[in-house]
């Protein structure tokens, strides 16, 4: 639709016209700011903690564990230079052989949620499956943070936490 509008503008004499063809769905899925009446819904990105410890494929488990310990965390998200999620090391893996290489022992393809997904249904699924956390990532797989069940249980449905809306 925007391409047609752009063509229409050009027909009206505009010469400096650009089309963001991917549109707002792409923008919101990347966890970028939004305006509008639909804002009161609490979304994964609103709940997610963004202080994840990250490590690289070639790091040693000892390095990753040390970094996690220093940040008082029990997981390390394996990412590339663009913060695209490649894997994850959880507590048992971090407690393993410190000389091992992250790539060799990481958990592959951890489940993620989109940042613009509503938090409430995610929480329901986490409770049903007894999952304590889920990674939040853009549609392109870039790490945004981790949504913890304990945080979501505290915030979902709390009227004080709903974002003010004049709609």
């Amino acid at each position: 639709m925007s391409l047609r509008a752009a063509a229409r503008l050009e027909s009206l004499g505009f010469t400096n016209v650009y089309d963001y063809e991917a549109g707002k769905a792409d923008w919101f899925a990347a966890g970028l700011p939004r305006e509008g009446d639909a804002m009161p819904v609490l979304r994964a990105a609103d709940v997610a903690r963004t202080d994840d410890v990250t490590c690289a494929l070639e790091d040693t488990v000892g390095d990753a564990a040390e970094r996690a310990r220093a940040a008082n965390q029990d997981q390390c998200i394996v990412v590339n230079e663009q913060r695209i999620i490649l894997g994850r090391l959880r507590a048992p893996a971090l407690a393993g052989d410190p000389a091992a290489v992250v790539e060799d022992i990481m958990e592959l393809g951890p489940t993620t949620s989109r940042p613009d997904a509503e938090a409430a249904p995610i929480l329901e699924r986490m409770q049903a499956r007894n999952v304590d956390r889920i990674l939040v990532a853009t549609s392109g797989g870039r790490l945004i943070g981790t949504m913890w069940r304990v945080d979501a249980e505290e915030r979902v449905g709390d009227p004080d936490d709903e974002i003010a809306c004049d709609c």
Binding site: A5, R8, L12, N16, Y18, E21, K24, L32, P33
Partner: peptide, 29 residues
């Protein structure tokens, strides 16, 4: 998107487009 104005395709004509500055870039989505 923050800061976007609304010019629905169905209402896009010479009059409604007059709110835009032709000298500056326009990005549509």
């Amino acid at each position: 998107l923050p800061g976007a104005i609304n010019l629905p395709l169905k209402k896009l004509n010479r009059d409604t487009a007059a709110v835009l500055d032709r000298a500056r870039p326009v990005v549509l989505y």
